[in-house]
Amino acid sequence: MNQNLNIQELNIAIAAKQHNPIILTPDFLKYSGIVPSEWELSQAPILTNYAAQVKFQNGINIIAQVNKIVFTELIATKELKEVQIPAIARKYSQTLTQLEYQEVAINFRGHVLFEQQNNTARNYIFRTLLNPGPWHEFGKAPVQAAMRFNYTLEEAQLSLDINEAGLQLPDKTVCPIVLFTASFSHAIAQEDQSQRLASLSKIISNWHTDLEIYKEVVNTKFLNLPYQLNLVPNETVIPIAPTF
């Protein structure tokens, strides 16, 4: 198989005790230097006592919840050096140094497009992944699965969700795809505040290492199969099957 995973989205979620979501406003982000002052909003900010959202026209989305901050960016057409939310997430934590940061999840979403004929996306899940294969052999411990594959790695725990979905093309037709959604969970050193901040910054700075692992496990363990997949340019992902 020559096709590789089509990676769409990077998401960085930081768990932090005593994080108040009402702090997340466009003014706070710009005046603190977390985002450039010239960035324009794509919609009105959302602000409640329980959650807040600021979304920019460049596709970067920041959501604050009680005890969690989530940074999301579409990266399908970007080079690694053009990806911005790792730097934004670091600046956010360096601005709010008083928070007790606990954990970082580096998450990716990507897909592979299958042929229309013979329900190939469904067959891939039900006739391939439910049988023994190389996807069972990765990480340091036996894999656990319920269409979620949980791997133990050197520096993180990796959860890989695999779901059937549909891809809406520019002509409004929908093609079958299989979504591969990865979450790398990293614990943060808790000795003292300076060590927590240093650990958090290091984890976020090394996000591209998780990206390479994500591509490795999907491309070499799941897509290294004896039949051909046909990929076409993508537009909108539409779920058409339940999440397992």
Rank of each mutant, 00 (worst) to 15 (best):
M1A: 12
Q3D: 12
N4D: 09
L5G: 01
I7V: 15
E9L: 14
E9S: 09
A16E: 00
A16C: 05
A16K: 00
A16H: 00
P21D: 05
D27M: 08
S32C: 10
S32M: 13
I34K: 01
I34L: 03
V35R: 02
S37P: 01
E38I: 07
E38W: 09
L41W: 04
A51F: 10
F56K: 09
Q57W: 03
N58P: 08
I63H: 05
A64Q: 09
Q65A: 08
I69A: 04
I69Y: 06
T72A: 11
E73N: 10
E73K: 09
I75Q: 05
A76V: 10
T77Q: 14
K78N: 11
K81Y: 10
V83S: 11
A87P: 02
A89I: 03
R90G: 04
K91A: 13
S93W: 01
L96I: 10
T97G: 03
Q98D: 11
Q98I: 04
L99A: 05
Q102E: 15
V104P: 06
A105D: 14
I106R: 05
F114L: 05
Q117D: 14
Q117A: 15
N119K: 11
N119M: 12
Y124L: 12
Y124R: 09
I125V: 15
F126E: 12
T128M: 11
L130Q: 13
L130C: 05
L130V: 13
W135R: 02
W135N: 01
H136G: 05
H136I: 05
F138G: 00
K140D: 13
K140G: 02
A141L: 13
A146H: 09
F149D: 02
T152I: 08
E155L: 13
L160C: 12
I162H: 00
N163F: 08
A165E: 08
A165P: 08
Q168S: 07
L169F: 08
L169D: 07
C175F: 15
A182S: 15
A182D: 09
S185H: 02
H186M: 03
I188P: 06
A189H: 06
E191H: 09
L197E: 07
A198L: 12
S199T: 04
L200M: 11
S201I: 08
I204H: 06
S205H: 11
W207Q: 01
T209A: 11
D210F: 00
E212T: 15
I213D: 06
E216T: 14
V218H: 01
T220E: 15
F222I: 02
N224R: 07
P226G: 05
L231A: 11
P233A: 05
P233W: 02
N234K: 04
V237F: 03
V237G: 08
I240K: 10
P242A: 12
P242M: 11
